[in-house]
């Protein structure tokens, strides 16, 4: 018998609807999510390009003039002939530049720690779901324990123990957040691992790490993406809180939280701008991420599919 080659059931179109294309078009349905995406893109660009677009390098003590301290927004400096659009802080630092550089730290810490937490949490969640039994119980009890403590308390303890540095803040946030990823991924992976393609992979004697990361993980991605988006916002907020409390990033690399803390004591003496504008920047960043995250959750949740 000759080999009868199969022709595809559907006629070949130029643009096949891949899951990715469908995802893009569904995401674009929400104006609010698009707005979030646009705002976040601008913020991210400002943060990345800060050294080139900021009027001043706020870390370079040589360009700071202590005589310019606590100037109002819009004030001009006679010597350099530059306008402080958002005023200056008590060191004479241009707030606009400080916010741009602060965004760099905040976003880097937020995204970095959320990514690290996702790697750690997702790996442990996958392992728990795939191996099951005692491994599963052990990992999930640690998760339960972790989630029963207030995040800020755990982070404070870790930072009090490790000391202040950007890296330590990242470690603290990872320790606080990995449990969310682990729990979410385990839930999805428990469903997926019962499906026949996993049995097929086992039957083909593929190594366990390959089954976990090439077969199981890609099919657990949608909820992971949603959690990751939300957790970036959470991480940024947590870092700001820690810095505000004086346990976060060191004063030499001020993040948004630290800028807010610096201006805090002048709030009641009418010099609102030192805290106010970094606060606005933080708020806009977190809201824009959450807008995207909320809609992502709707798009990627199969149960909400029309």
């Amino acid at each position: 018998m000759s080999v009868a080659l199969q022709t595809p059931a559907a006629p070949v179109r130029d643009r096949v609807e891949t899951p990715f294309r469908r995802f893009i078009s569904e995401f674009a349905e929400s104006k609010l999510a698009l707005l979030g995406l646009a705002v976040f893109t601008v913020i991210a660009l400002v943060a990345i390009l800060a050294p080139w677009i900021a009027p001043q390098n706020p870390y370079d003590l040589a360009v700071l003039d202590i005589m310019d301290g606590r100037l109002e927004p819009g004030a001009r400096n006679g010597a350099d002939d530059m306008t402080y659009w958002l005023g200056t802080d008590d060191q004479g630092r241009d707030m606009l530049s400080a916010i741009m550089y602060g965004l760099r730290i905040s976003l880097a810490v937020g995204a970095g720690s959320a990514l690290l937490a996702a790697i750690v949490g997702a790996s442990l969640g996958l392992l728990a779901a795939y191996v099951g039994g005692r491994t599963d119980s052990a990992i999930m009890r640690v998760v339960d324990l972790q989630l029963s403590f207030p995040a800020i308390l755990v982070a404070l303890m870790i930072l009090a123990f490790l000391g202040k540095s950007v890296m330590n803040v990242v470690i603290a946030i990872v320790v606080v957040e990995w449990a969310y990823y682990a729990r979410t991924v385990r839930g999805t992976a428990l469903v997926e691992r019962r499906r026949e393609y996993i049995e097929a992979a086992q039957c083909l004697a593929l190594p366990t790490h390959r089954i976990l990361f090439r077969h199981l993980l890609p099919n657990c991605l949608p909820p992971l993406i949603v959690i990751a988006t939300m957790q970036v916002a959470r991480a940024i907020a947590l870092e700001a809180t820690l810095s505000f409390l004086g346990l976060g990033v060191p004063i030499t690399e001020p993040s948004l939280g630290l800028l807010i803390a610096n201006g805090y004591e002048y709030m009641l003496s009418g010099k609102y701008w030192i805290s106010f504008y970094p606060g606005i920047a933080l708020l806009v960043t977190i809201v824009s991420i959450n807008l995207m995250g909320d809609h992502l959750r709707d798009v990627l949740n199969p149960r909400l599919k029309k």
Partner: peptide, 28 residues
């Protein structure tokens, strides 16, 4: 183990939806 292989009942659940056919067939 490799010499004993299995064909599954559900042709929808038994193929990894995130892999291309070439990888599904050629991975192992």
């Amino acid at each position: 183990k490799l010499q004993r292989q299995m064909i599954f009942q559900d042709p929808y659940a038994s193929l990894n939806p995130r892999m291309r056919v070439a990888d599904i067939v050629g991975e192992a």
